[in-house]
């Protein structure tokens, strides 16, 4: 996205620096994102604002361009790596914050039969950035693992991910089992993954379909904030 000559990040004003961090995040430049975040923090920026304006804002553009076929998985992964480098600086500060900004717990896992976790990990990172405590069940997650995690962690939201058309129907199995055990209405269920769409999410009875990492995070945030108020 960016094509500028060399310059010092510290010479940019706040607005320019945020835009530059977003550009560097788009280009997957880990060191530059780290440095940019460091500079904003040194200017007494609140860690939450750095996260929201620079990192999550940047990843939102990445997510949109991935969805539109402008960026592909390798570029998205580089961007995620750059976000991770910024998060290294922010995570300790956010965890020590006296203000409870937590949106609650989000249990997430790739469904049974599926070992693909790149998308899930991206979503997890965005959720963490948005203020969720992410409980990651990993890959090949069966119904008992999902439901066990719901019992144990009482999350605000449960998310299921799949990359394969052959494994995505398992999400319906999990939801059916939640229903059978009388716990379906206790949890908001989101689903996502490359082959999914809204029609599928509706068909299996999910509450929401996240078409990309950024959108999933936004939707989760909106739901959790509303649930917090209610």
């Amino acid at each position: 996205m960016s094509d500028q000559d060399d310059f010092e990040l510290s010479e940019l004003d706040d607005k320019e620096l945020v835009e530059q961090i977003q550009d560097d995040l788009y280009d997957g430049l880990q060191d530059e994102v780290y440095e940019g975040v460091e500079i904003l923090l040194s200017r007494d920026w609140d860690a939450n604002n750095v996260l929201g304006d620079a990192l999550v804002g940047g990843m939102k553009v990445v997510g949109e361009d991935f969805r539109d076929g402008i960026l592909f998985v390798p570029e998205v992964l580089k961007s995620a790596g750059a976000m991770k480098s910024g998060m290294e600086l922010l995570r300790p500060i956010l965890s020590q914050s006296s203000v409870d900004l937590s949106l609650g717990k989000f249990v997430i896992g790739t469904v049974k039969g599926d070992i693909h976790d790149i998308g899930k990990n991206l979503v997890g990172m965005m959720l963490e950035g948005a203020g969720f405590e992410v409980i990651d069940l990993g890959i090949n997650t069966d119904v008992d693992e999902y439901l066990g995690a719901l019992d144990e962690h009482k999350p605000v939201i449960m998310g299921m991910s799949a990359l394969l058309t052959t494994t995505m129907p398992y999400m319906g199995v999990v939801i059916e089992e939640m229903d059978k055990r009388g716990m379906r209405n206790d949890f908001h269920v989101m689903c996502g993954g490359a082959p999914l769409n809204q029609e599928f999410a509706d068909a299996i009875g999910a509450d929401a379909y996240g078409r990309d990492a950024a959108r999933s995070s936004e939707m989760a945030q909106t739901y959790a904030e509303a649930a917090k108020v209610a």
């Binding site: 592909f72 390798p74 992964l77 580089k78 070992i115 693909h116 890959i139």
Partner: peptide, 18 residues
């Protein structure tokens, strides 16, 4: 296609569970 020439470090992300 997977960007592994440009970003060899992605190999382990793509294939860690294979």
């Amino acid at each position: 296609g997977l960007g592994l020439n440009d970003y060899p470090e992605l190999r382990d992300m793509y294939f860690k569970h294979y």
